[in-house]
Design a protein around this nucleic acid. Structure first.
Lengths: 197, 197
DNA sequence: CGCCGAGTTGAACTGAATCAAGAAACGTGG
DNA sequence: CCACGTTTCTTGATTCAGTTCAACTCGGCG
């Protein structure tokens, strides 16, 4: 993996949001740190304060909570070129309720909270990237809220199937079930039922 | 309601997020528009593009979706000094899936999307307010997601009761039920059950 | 080869939905 | 200010989607 292709990923990702000057780009780039994780390792654990906002160079991650009775609830899956962070903790700098785990070997490009804040004070474009990003993930959560409130488990599964078919090929069933808010057994039955039609 | 007290509300609200210079403050203030609604009227209807980001000077609103079978799903209640907007539509400038209705007579202080964008290009502090706001509502949605996925209807009700007791005094039961993701009958039973304990 | 976690299947159970009917609260006009 | 109709809330009986628990199968890996 050449440093160039990694630079390219960042450039492409940021340019989707805002046009950066050479100076701004250099400033951002100088704070980017590469981190790697083995399959099963944690990018952020429960109780830890998230220090980084990252972009996945290569790999797959899942974000999940633990309910009071110790069950894991997956709420997000992230692939190549997606943003990844325990965002709530990153924003508030409080211990994270969400954990993030590498489902494959993972390489991410990360920027530290402190560095990003400094950039936000210096450059309006950094502030802008921050705003557009927050807006983007807000929209995703809102879509999810509607989905959870208005659709049955079967409908939610079909919606997911439709929106993100590759997810279903790459992510273990039990994680998908918890993302949909149901038990693995129920998802298994839903799939069976759909296959019979 | 003097113009001064309204100015004060805005100043207080914005100053929570960022310190504004006189110039910035004057620029923002010049774009603020006052709007009033009668009880039952809509600040934004389904299908309409949300033009405004507003702060409630006085009154109570609810935001709600309509499911495909025509049922209303309330997802937010807003009171004095809260922000109010069909935010998804405001951000994307696409027709809104969410409607916002005045539950009492309502007075809001609004800024138009176009004006706000202009301010964002001119002033870093406007951009910053936008970012912090987006982050704030994101956090609220994430809390809600956890609540919907990990708690039973009864637990969600108790949580709401705990977090926002005044809401329960001011908002009709049926709206609260749909906010909790259940039917009014079920909420009625939950309340009965809790009263018996 | 044998083990272990992931997925499937079955049967009993449960929380919440649905349908239906009645009681209480609300607002509007006379 | 009361009477009426409408909406909101409650209660009961039934149904249903999804859970729970337990047993079994399958595929991968040491």
């Amino acid at each position: 993996m050449s440093p160039t292709s990694k630079s390219n990923l960042l450039k492409t990702t940021f340019n989707k949001l805002v046009q950066l000057s050479e100076e701004e780009w250099a400033a951002m780039n100088s704070h980017i740190k590469e981190r790697t994780f083995k399959k099963g390792e944690y990018l952020c654990k429960h109780g830890q304060v998230e220090q980084y906002l990252s972009i996945i160079f290569k790999g797959t991650c899942r974000g999940f909570y633990s309910s009071k009775d110790g069950e894991e609830i997956s709420v997000a899956f992230m692939f190549d070129h997606d943003y990844v962070s325990a965002y709530y903790s990153f924003l508030t700098q409080r211990p994270s309720l969400m954990a993030i785990q590498a489902l494959t070997p993972v390489t991410v490009l990360s920027i530290h909270k402190t560095d990003l804040e400094e950039l936000c004070y210096q450059y309006k474009s950094a502030e802008r990237i921050g705003r557009l990003n927050a807006e983007r993930i807000y929209r995703r959560k809102e879509e999810r809220e509607i989905s959870l409130l208005t659709l049955s488990a079967k409908e939610r599964y079909l919606q997911l199937l439709n929106q993100n078919p590759k997810l279903l090929r790459q992510i273990p069933l039990k994680y998908i079930a918890s993302y949909l808010g149901i038990q693995p057994e129920s998802l298994s039955r839903i799939r069976k039922q759909l296959a019979e039609e």
